[in-house]
Each structure stands twice: as structure tokens, then as C-alpha cells.
Amino acid sequence: MINTHVTIQSMVLEKLKNMPLKFNFWLQILFILVFALVLFGPIVNLLIWTVTEVWYFPHALPSQWGFKYWHQVFNPYSNVSSSLFTSIIIAILTVCVCLLVSVPAGYALSKRSMPFRVFWMLLFLIPQAFPNLTVYMNIARLFYEFGLNGTLLGVVLVHSIHGLMFSVWISVAAFSTTDPMLERASRNLGAGPIYTFFHIILPQAAPGIIASCIFVFLESLDEFTGTFFVGAPDISTLPLLLYSASMEGNYQIASITALILLVPSILFMLIINKFMSPEMLSKLGK
């Protein structure tokens, strides 16, 4: 008798012990669902829009599905493919401009002995400190005087201003992580400073510089405001197309464009993840 009593008691205890765990479990599920909805809800909506042909207002789902708009987008004569091409050209040129500045600047600024080091570093941040709109409006006004408005060069320069912050700051961090003894060893064995830079220092900093290039590339690909003020209407990039498509209520084109823009972002994020070492991240801004 006593034995069964004890077992029942222990069972009740067991249940009580499990109760909060179960409650927690359902709470967790609820949170995960809410977060998933917040994160992926808009994306799901976007994905549905890409394969919609007809969708009337009160309905929860489109009445007609299909890839009609994909064919439209990937038609060689469509705006989208030409904009995609322009976007990529601009992004590559922006990366080149940023590299030209950030490699020497990053190396110079990684040296503690550099005069006004903090000032130079902050200089590249200043355009980000003001509201985008005012900065780009004034740039557009300036570029107008030089005839740069509506030109590829103008847009590349605007993107570079934005990209330089990333590329310079990351390059400084990348060069700071290189061991100064490696440089000394090279000089010691008879290599001049320039030979040493290209054969020893640059290879050491390369992963960080590649990561900064990817950032610049992605930023340029997604850049809207600057392109709008300096490039439109002569230069049409994907974000500009996205803007005009959604303004015209052409959600299918806008969604597909957004999806195209998503691809390089995800791809490069994975690569950056590989290149950015924790040691380098710890040197950011130092």
C-alpha cells in the first residue's frame, strides 16, 4: 500500500516538474512563430508576388499564378536586364575606385605614426554623419557644374563616397592585423619598401581587403538615393527600376528585381563570413 502511494506521489512530482518545461516549450514555439512571421512574412509576400499573374484585392492569394513576368524581366530587351548590367558595371567600377583609395590609405592609416590619424579616419565617416538626402543633393548640384550629372562616372563617384567608409575602415583593420615583424624580415633580406608591400604586406591583408570589396560591391548594388539624385533619369540601376516599378504599381517586376538583388547579397555574405577573421574585426576602428 505504502509502496503504491509513494509511486503515485513521485508521479505527481514528476508531472509538476515537467509542467514548467512544457509551458516554456510552447512559449518558445510561439515566439519563434512570431519572429518567423515578422522576418519572413514580407519575404513570403514578395515571393508570392514574383509568381503572380493576377491578384485582386480582397483575396488572400493570387487568382492566377505563372512565370509571365519572369519572361518579361529576362527578355534581353527589357529594362531589367539593361539595368542589371548597368548596376553591375557601376558596382565593379566603384570597387575599383575604392580599392585605389583604400589600399594605400588603409596601409598608411594602420601605422600609428601617421599624423592626424584619427582625423583622416573620421573624414571618411563624415558623409555618413549627415542625412543622406542633403549630402547627395549638394553633390548633385556640384556635379551639375562639372557636367557629371547623368554620367556613369558621376554615379560611380557617388557610390564611392559611400563605399569608401567601408573599404577604408576595413582596410585599416586588415593592415593593422599584419605582423610588423614580417615586414621587417622582408626588409632585412634585401627587399625595398615597395617590393615588401606587394609581396608580404598585401597578401597578409588580402582577406580583409576582399571582404571590404564585397561590402562596397553590395552597397553599390543596393544604392538608391545617390543614384537617384546624380544619375536619374539617364542612368538606370536596379534599385531605381525597383522604385519606379513599385511606384507604378507593378509589384511583380518590383518583386522579381528585389529577388535578383537578394542573390549577390546572400552569396557574398557567405564569402565574407569566411574572410572576416575575429582578430581583424577586433581591430576595426582602432
Partner: peptide, 11 residues
């Protein structure tokens, strides 16, 4: 300069 000295070092 360091590269012209022909004195090498084991660090």
C-alpha cells in the same frame, strides 16, 4: 636603409 646592409636576422 635596412635592405642594403646585408646583415640578416633570425627573429
Amino acid at each position: 636603409p635596412a635592405e642594403k646592409r646585408n646583415i640578416t636576422m633570425v627573429f
